[in-house]
Amino acid sequence: MASQGTKRSYEQMETDGERQNATEIRASVGKMIDGIGRFYIQMCTELKLSDYEGRLIQNSLTIERMVLSAFDERRNKYLEEHPSAGKDPKKTGGPIYKRVDRKWMRELVLYDKEEIRRIWRQANNGDDATAGLTHMMIWHSNLNDTTYQRTRALVRTGMDPRMCSLMQGSTLPRRSGAAGAAVKGVGTMVMELIRMIKRGINDRNFWRGENGRKTRSAYERMCNILKGKFQTAAQRAMMDQVRESRNPGNAEIEDLIFLARSALILRGSVAHKSCLPACVYGPAVASGYDFEKEGYSLVGIDPFKLLQNSQVYSLIRPNENPAHKSQLVWMACNSAAFEDLRVLSFIRGTKVSPRGKLSTRGVQIASNENMDAMESSTLELRSRYWAIRTRSGGNTNQQRASAGQISVQPAFSVQRNLPFDKPTIMAAFTGNTEGRTSDMRAEIIRMMEGAKPEEMSFQGRGVFELSDERAANPIVPSFDMSNEGSYFFGDNAEEYDN
């Protein structure tokens, strides 16, 4: 993207840094990872977990959730003011799984939030270390993106479920800051804005008074975040219109849905970061690795190297396929839920299948599930090659597409044709070009129609051997075009429920 120079890199967003050079960025990201790792080690000690239990991804998720809940100030305040039966607002906890007599047992633990905050700050040299908290939120978000298709949420806001490739980060909490905003897809931002506008339509006082002023500035800020994701002048001009509207209503909703559809071809720039579970960072720190000293990046080879040398386990339900569970977590670790499966298959070195073909449910185990038949197995999170994460949407291309997802959002900077089903997408653009945004709409449609099938995206960008740390010898991959490109292809993934 041309304006790259004016933006802070995501590592800076990730670490609240002012302008830093590459070495400083690597050190501050490393410091953040160190903090998460030290916190995780301490929690495993508190909970008396064995090494194996500490490497269980379900335990990692519970521990991450506990610290996120302990620092969720708004919710904590709300819980104190609106006490609900049987919930102690000062405590947080969740299921911890232990191996007892050759069987997995679930144990519900409860801790004072104050105590968890103390352990977290102690692991982070006394700081609140917001960057580390956001990092864990993005890992949870990436896992949700890989596990669930947001059909219901899309339909509720009037969008087409086939636009799911635009929904990265749709389950990120509001408090995820600049680093969170960077990884949100165009569809996620559109959905947040539509929800806001709908509230304004239904509630006369939404934009009024002292609160209304705050609401208005939040609305304009979200519009600017979305505008910054678009790469064409016409899309940005249309966002200006939406932002400046005196009284946002149905016309703005129409414009936003139009823009979301246009992003299936004229893709937005959305950041991709490899955020790993805390149970990967903990053992690495415990083994003596100093992330701050060595430096770390979320968008280069580092996460690949770390996963190459990590042992992570997962509980497996009786009829689940461990290899499929591994694929789910591998995609989440690489922030690749909406990437082209052919690119992923090449990088991973084994075939990556669409969601609907995987015999696996989510990673988390519900409290009512029976533990008797639970097994555990090693997650295979290694890769054959590594590639640089991208934040450009890439230019655009036609490809055989599917009944489910009709476009992709690249996660890796790797040369390819970008699949999208042009006739299906263009069919949504018939007729409606009147109104105050008509010239911009016409211009956007013209650009979409001009998108050429034979153009290559990320020209000359390749993948790298894991021994090639400096990215000196790019390998331009070859793809098996007979395979499906979309992950949520004609899909039956479970729906995400809060």
Rank of each mutant, 00 (worst) to 15 (best):
A182G: 11
S310K: 00
G349N: 06
V476W: 00
N483G: 00
G450K: 08
A271M: 12
E24R: 11
N319C: 11
L68M: 11
G404P: 02
G485E: 04
H135I: 05
N224I: 11
E495I: 02
L61H: 08
E220S: 09
D439Y: 04
G126S: 12
Y487V: 00
D16M: 12
L110E: 03
R102C: 11
G94A: 05
R55V: 07
V100N: 11
S28K: 15
Q168G: 03
F458Q: 04
I41W: 10
E115D: 13
V280A: 10
P474R: 15
K422V: 07
R382G: 09
R102N: 01
V242N: 05
H82G: 00
S310H: 10
D112P: 08
I197H: 00
R461K: 09
S141H: 06
S170D: 09
G169K: 12
Q168K: 07
G200M: 08
E494S: 00
T188Q: 09
W139D: 05
D302P: 14
G349Y: 06
G209K: 08
W139Y: 12
W139K: 04
L256I: 04
A337D: 03
L154H: 05
S407K: 07
N473Q: 15
E494G: 03
E465Q: 08
R38E: 05
L306T: 14
Q42I: 10
T45W: 06
L154V: 14
I225R: 02
D160C: 13
E80A: 08
R470E: 00
G200T: 14
K98S: 11
V242M: 15
S402T: 14
S345G: 14
R19K: 14
G431S: 09
I41F: 11
V183S: 09
F346T: 07
K87T: 05
K357A: 05
Y296V: 07
M196K: 06
Q311N: 15
G462L: 14
I253F: 12
R117T: 09
L341K: 10
D468I: 01
E53S: 13
N417Q: 13
G431V: 11
E465T: 00
L344H: 05
N483T: 04
F488A: 01
D340C: 09
M136P: 02
I444S: 01
A218W: 04
D421W: 05
A129V: 13
N247H: 14
E495T: 09
L143Q: 02
G200L: 06
P423V: 13
N370G: 02
N334I: 04
S84R: 00
N211D: 11
G300I: 06
V270E: 06
S377H: 15
A179W: 02
A337V: 12
V186G: 00
R117W: 08
I425T: 15
S28T: 02
F71C: 05
V476T: 05
L306Q: 15
D290I: 04
L306I: 14
Y496H: 06
W330I: 09
K184A: 05
R156D: 02
I116E: 05
V352P: 08
S9Q: 11
V312K: 01
G86C: 03
S269V: 09
S297P: 10
N211Y: 11
N483I: 14
L166H: 06
F230A: 09
R152C: 01
R213I: 02
I301L: 14
S413G: 07
D127F: 13
N417Y: 13
A179K: 11
E495F: 01
R8F: 00
G185V: 06
Q149F: 06
M136D: 00
S345N: 11
V408C: 14
N202Y: 14
A278S: 12
A472P: 10
R441G: 03
V285L: 09
S28F: 07
T378C: 07
D34W: 01
D439Q: 06
E454I: 13
P354E: 03
E114N: 13
R74L: 12
R26H: 05
E454T: 12
I301N: 05
T62Q: 02
C164E: 00
P419W: 01
K48A: 14
Y289M: 12
P277C: 12
E53W: 12
P277T: 12
V242A: 14
N142V: 04
W139R: 05
A27T: 11
D51H: 02
M456F: 04
L49V: 13
A129N: 06
K273F: 05
E192I: 09
G450E: 00
S377D: 00
M448Y: 00
G460E: 04
T430K: 10
M43Q: 03
M196L: 10
R416L: 02
A401L: 00
D145A: 12
E73F: 12
G485A: 10
L344C: 11
P419E: 12
K229M: 11
A403R: 13
G30W: 09
T396F: 11
S245I: 06
N59K: 12
M1T: 09
D160F: 04
S170W: 10
K90I: 13
M374S: 06
S457W: 01
S407Y: 05
M167G: 09
D340M: 09
I197F: 10
I316H: 08
G158E: 03
G180H: 07
L298C: 07
N483E: 01
A278I: 13
C333A: 15
E210V: 02
P283N: 04
I316A: 04
I197V: 15
I444C: 15
S482P: 00
E339K: 13
G158T: 10
S245V: 01
E252F: 09
P322S: 11
I36P: 01
N492C: 09
H272F: 04
R106T: 05
S262F: 09
K357S: 03
G187F: 02
A323V: 13
R355G: 04
M371H: 05
R208Q: 05
P89Y: 13
T147G: 08
E24D: 10
E434H: 12
V183M: 09
S141L: 03
M456T: 04
R106G: 08
E210P: 01
S457I: 01
M163I: 15
L264A: 11
Q231Y: 01
W139P: 07
T92G: 12
T396R: 15
L143T: 06
Q409S: 13
P474V: 13
M1D: 12
F206G: 03
G268Q: 06
R175Q: 01
E192C: 11
V100R: 11
L49F: 14
T350W: 11
Q149W: 07
M136V: 14
A442H: 00
L264M: 15
K98I: 06
L154G: 01
N21I: 05
I194M: 12
I194G: 00
A182Q: 11
L49W: 09
I194D: 12
I119N: 10
S297G: 08
L154M: 13
M137Y: 06
A131P: 15
G288P: 08
Y296T: 11
K305P: 06
K357Q: 10
L466T: 11
N395C: 11
I444M: 11
A129I: 05
G30C: 10
A22L: 00
E80S: 14
S482E: 04
E449V: 11
R400Y: 03
I63A: 14
E375W: 09
Q149K: 11
I194N: 01
T360P: 07
A387P: 03
A387H: 03
N432G: 04
T157V: 15
M239D: 06
R195K: 11
R99D: 04
F291C: 14
G86S: 11
T188A: 14
K113Q: 12
R150C: 08
S402F: 01
P419A: 14
